[in-house]
Write a protein that binds this DNA or RNA. Structure first.
Length: 744
DNA sequence: CTAAACACTGTTTTT
DNA sequence: CAGTGTTTAG
């Protein structure tokens, strides 16, 4: 019986949206095209379930980021006040299950969540133990293979059974040892948070049934990006109560590299019989121009179910491709355009977003923003917690919560310096290994270790005492604990006494960490230190995004998923970057890159710009860049503006060279990015003949002396040491220098 | 044992 | 170019 509330919940919905919202029991697949009002449908559906008498604690909603989870919780709360629906990410859910059912599963609930960095250290340690010091396989690569194995629910034993070459056999060995070390340290890597719950749900029928019953209604957003472990969790929670609703769009699957399997969504109907399928095709976000360009692009994917994307929105401005001469001009060009749009009162800064394929590209942008006084935020969440000083403090905290935490122990045992060097540590580690005790416990009996004497022994003993003392106050709120650590460890003292200016900044950063932790516990006084650490460990990049402030947002294509902005700029849409070099081998991978481009484009509501430049500095080298193949796949209506201002580029030679590249590109199927450039016919004469020893004048930096000349043609570079003290490197073709004296 | 100088190397996307 | 690991001097 629909209450008045119910009709509110259905207000303003299209028939298919309404169908999705009012579906209660049985599996439901919502294929939601970009901008089709998906979030709205999901929240309304949760609210609708509540209005139908479903109890809040029987609903589980899974989102892709914590931020999205928070928003959904908030919106549901607004629609149906007083209901606390459990909304979380898969990883947070996993952590919660492991802590909650830890006892039953023989897991210590105080486990530490290890990030990629911690994981790699442990893999490295495992390599050492295994006596594999070959540099053939980097810890990174091995860790990646282990991660993949866990995503596919392969235990070390299962993995070993399938290992059939030298690499996989090495991985198998390391995987065994790594797991052993990880369990001994009472640590969980990111994959464990999915892998272990998935395994337990599979093997422990009693627990599975309990949870299935508890989470009667399960809803999963961004289902196209779930991996096998996540699938297993969803599947096992929906056996007795098969009310699983998944929402996704195969065209927006962009995490294959992380183990996500697009088959999960494509085969959903087969896996869950009697699934109701609802397709949302109407787009409410973008102009016709934008949507059309995006559809034409994505239509180039062969592995794809054709799908119409329609909108009743106006045609809008044409999508524009902007060609710049080089990366610097591209960054400035974009920033200046944004500034002009704001000055013309057309948009606010916060209406703009810039998407990048790789984080490294944000540097040039940053300087352009600063130079032009345009407010911006680079959305990269962990940057703050990644600072050394904060990681150190967090390692102390982790060790307090989990005394078995090897990685954290090793990180801070000599931080600040206590005279404990590598040799002493190696001895401590092997002592602990021999007795099968934790490093902290070993530190407690350092007097028994004959090989550690003098300053090292005192240092280890002091450290052990410090941790023991701090551990007597387990219930201190996070911020007070940090202060205590800071004082008792002499970390603060060390920074204060330092003459290094940066150390003052470090102290300020720690103060900021204290503020963050205080805010965290002020929001909810029941939150513990362990909760604080977990929140940091599981934070995603977009979680740090500040929607309120009036700033331009800069983020990766991946981080942009699920967001929308009135004006969007895609930067460096170039062969080798988008599609990325590493995808160029396989059609499958290129299709994922195309989806990435599609995701970026469909974030735009009113205006969309795709930028690329001809020359780009990359790890200190200038490279000619070829426009992305995706740009050629756009429809004719897209307008092209060549803003390459550089008149002195040897255009004819450049065109000839590009022609060659395109010829090779055609023969290999797809273009590849040149690693080195052939010398141009015009040699180095374009930018003038420079040689080492010349004294030159630069408009900005003044008088200097050429110290080095290298490269040819457009790549010819100069190093100039200026009278003011600095040394700069210039591209000879670009820089305006006056030769003052042939040779000094 | 520490710190500083050096050589080397490797390069996407992230929970 | 930067970030990491290694060597060297104190």
């Amino acid at each position: 019986m629909p209450s008045p509330e119910t009709s509110d919940l259905l207000a303003g919905l299209t028939p298919p949206q309404r169908d999705a919202v009012t579906h209660v029991d049985g599996p439901l697949l919502i294929l939601a095209g970009a901008g089709s009002g998906k979030t709205r449908v999901i929240t309304r559906r949760v609210a609708y379930l509540l209005s139908q008498g479903v109890r809040a604690h029987n609903i589980l909603a899974i989102t892709f980021t914590n931020k999205a989870a928070g928003e959904m919780r908030h919106r549901v709360e607004q629609l149906v006040p007083g209901n606390k629906v459990f909304v979380s990410t898969f990883h947070s859910l996993g952590a919660r299950l492991l802590r909650q059912y830890g006892e039953r599963l023989n897991i210590d609930r105080n486990f530490t969540i290890y990030d990629v960095d911690d994981r790699n250290r442990l893999v490295k340690a495992a390599l050492g133990t295994a006596g594999i010091d070959d540099v053939k396989f980097t810890p990174d690569r091995l860790a990646g293979a282990i991660s993949k194995a866990k995503n596919m629910l392969l235990t070390p034993k299962l993995y070993e059974a399938t290992a059939n070459d030298f690499f996989t056999q090495t991985v198998a060995k390391v995987y065994h040892l790594y797991e052993k070390k990880l369990r001994a340290a009472n640590g969980m890597d990111f994959d464990d948070l999915l892998y272990l719950p998935a395994l337990f749900l599979k093997l422990n029928e009693e627990l599975r049934r309990d949870l299935d019953h508890r989470f009667k209604y399960v809803l999963i957003d961004e289902y196209q990006d779930t991996n096998q472990a996540q699938y297993e969790i969803a599947r096992r929670l929906s056996v007795n109560e098969p009310n699983l609703c998944v929402v996704g769009d195969p065209d927006q699957s962009i995490y294959k590299w992380r183990g996500s399997d697009i088959k999960n969504i494509l085969d959903f109907e087969r896996d869950f019989p009697a699934t109701k399928v609802i397709t949302l095709e109407q787009n409410y976000r973008s102009t016709q121009s934008i949507l059309h360009a995006a559809s034409v692009l994505i239509d180039h994917n062969k592995q794809r179910k054709k799908k119409a994307l329609v909108t009743a929105n106006p045609q809008g401005e044409p999508v524009r491709v902007l060609t710049f001469d080089n990366g610097l001009e591209e960054a400035e060009g974009v920033v200046v355009r944004i500034k002009e749009a704001v000055q013309a009162k057309k948009f606010r800064y916060r209406d703009h977003a810039i998407f990048l394929r790789i984080n490294a590209l944000s540097r040039t942008l940053e300087s352009a923003f600063v130079k032009h006084g345009v407010p911006f935020q680079i959305v990269k969440g962990l940057a703050f917690f990644d600072r050394k000083e904060n990681k150190d403090i967090l390692a102390y905290l982790r060790l307090l919560v989990n005394p078995a935490d090897t990685v954290s122990f090793l990180r801070v045992v000599n931080e600040p310096p206590r005279g404990v060097g590598k040799v002493s540590l190696d001895r401590l580690v092997s002592y602990a290994a021999d007795l099968d005790i934790t490093l902290l416990a070993a530190a407690g009996q350092v007097h028994k270790i004959a090989d550690i004497r003098g300053k090292a022994a005192t240092g280890v003993r002091d450290f052990h005492r410090l941790i023991a003392e701090l551990r007597t106050q387990p219930d201190l709120p996070p911020h007070e604990m940090i202060r205590l650590v800071l004082d008792k460890s002499n970390y603060r003292k060390q920074l204060q006494e330092s003459t290094d200016e940066e150390d003052a900044d470090r102290l300020a950063n720690i103060e900021e960490l204290i503020t963050a932790s205080k805010q965290f516990s002020d929001e909810d006084s029941s939150r513990t230190l362990s909760d604080f650490l977990e929140q940091i460990a599981l934070a995603s990049d977009v979680d740090s995004w500040d929607e309120e402030s009036d700033r331009v947002s800069v983020m990766t294509f991946h981080a942009a998923k699920g967001l929308e902005f009135p004006v969007v700029y895609l930067m460096a849409v170039e062969q080798g970057l988008l599609p990325h070099d590493r995808s160029l081998g396989k059609d499958e991978d290129i299709e994922e890159e195309r989806r990435l481009c599609f995701v970026g484009m469909t974030r735009a509501m009113k205006e969309l710009y795709l930028c690329h430049s001809r020359l780009r500095e990359f790890r200190g080298q200038a490279l000619y860049q070829v426009a992305s193949m995706f740009l050629e796949e756009l429809p004719r209506e897209v307008s092209h503006d060549d803003l390459a201002a550089r008149k002195n580029l040897p255009r004819a030679a450049l065109d000839e060279w590009r022609g060659k590249v395109n010829a090779t590109a055609a023969s290999t199927g797809y273009g590849t990015q040149p690693r080195t450039l052939p010398p141009l016919k015009s040699g180095g004469s374009v930018g003038g003949d420079y040689e080492a020893g010349q004294v030159v004048q630069h408009a900005e930096y003044g008088i200097g002396q050429v110290t080095d000349v290298s490269g040819f043609g457009a790549l010819r570079k100069l190093k100039v040491r200026f009278a003011t003290g600095g040394e700069k490197t210039f591209v000879a073709d670009m820089v305006k220098l006056t030769v003052v004296q042939r040779k000094a």
